[in-house]
């Protein structure tokens, strides 16, 4: 069940590039059930210019706290990243449909994240590990500085890294790393659209099942306004309510 609730910021860690890792506790004391890949929709307080809510991936739910990894991308998210512990946020959650669990515990799965897109993969990776799967992570960033939460990822599985400038891991995008061409049954991918399209194209070539998490601009987050649609083989579908996770077989990316 979806709800609109107040959350208190318990801890907020400033990260390079103005980004932040925020940990929040529900003021009601009751954390709603949330699936990896779902998202929350946050009202930005006291910020003229941020009229609509800001959809943010669920990065983790741990010890009664909701983790959000927020990229300072514009007026609204910059304000969120500058908030302090003790301040409260009005959040609608949980929204959308998450990643599909692999059919078999032996499935060879690779979770591929780029930039702030690594956020939902942490929660998913931890859930996979808890349920006896063996997730591997391929994480890409612009520089070593931009790679975050690596210690958390390492607790959940093997971590492979690429950076655009080569300051950490393999130089280049995630597509430059050999691990992406290893024998794999399914990719789960979240990151900038060009990166996801590259991964989707490779998945098609390798005949690997591939799920991606999209972040089209949205308003309601509930499937009502039809603003955030993605063109799929079944027509325009709302990213907020049909997704945000799509199997790339449903998308028309390879046609463009």
């Amino acid at each position: 069940m979806k709800e609109k609730s107040l959350f208190e910021i318990i801890d907020i860690e400033s990260l390079p590039l103005g980004n932040a890792l925020m940990k929040l506790r529900p003021c009601s004391g009751k954390m709603p059930d949330m699936e990896p890949g779902q998202f929350v929709n946050i009202l930005v307080p006291d910020t003229p210019g941020a009229f609509l809510r800001r959809p943010i991936s669920i990065c983790n739910v741990c010890d009664g706290l909701l983790w959000l990894f927020i990229k300072a991308a514009g007026t609204g998210t910059r304000h969120l990243c500058s908030m302090k512990a003790g301040e409260k946020l009005d959040i609608v959650l949980p929204l959308g449909n998450g990643f599909t669990m692999p059919e078999s515990k032996d499935a060879r799965i690779l979770l591929i994240g780029g930039g702030v897109g690594i956020a939902p993969l942490l929660y998913f990776g931890i859930r996979l590990r808890e349920q006896g799967y063996n997730p591997r992570f391929l994480l890409g960033g612009a520089t070593a500085d931009s790679l975050q939460l690596l210690d958390e990822f390492k607790k959940a599985g093997e971590v492979y890294i690429t950076t655009d400038d080569g300051s950490c891991g393999v130089r280049g995008t995630v597509l430059a790393h050999d691990i992406i061409r290893s024998q794999t049954d399914r990719f789960y991918c979240c990151g900038p659209t060009p990166m996801m399209k590259g991964v989707a194209a490779l998945a098609r070539e390798m005949n690997v099942d591939c799920e991606v998490s999209l972040e089209n601009r949205m308003a309601c987050g509930l499937g009502a306004c039809l603003c955030c649609v993605e063109d799929t083989i079944e027509g325009h579908r709302c990213v907020c309510s049909w997704g945000p996770v799509f199997n790339t077989k449903e998308l028309k990316w390879h046609e463009s």
Partner: peptide, 22 residues
């Protein structure tokens, strides 16, 4: 099917939409 994406833009104290009757 309505209009292609993007169909929404945030504006001062409001928003623009171009859903197009999907």
């Amino acid at each position: 099917q309505g209009n292609p994406y993007p169909r929404i833009a945030e504006t001062p104290s409001g928003m623009l939409n171009a859903v197009g009757l999907q």
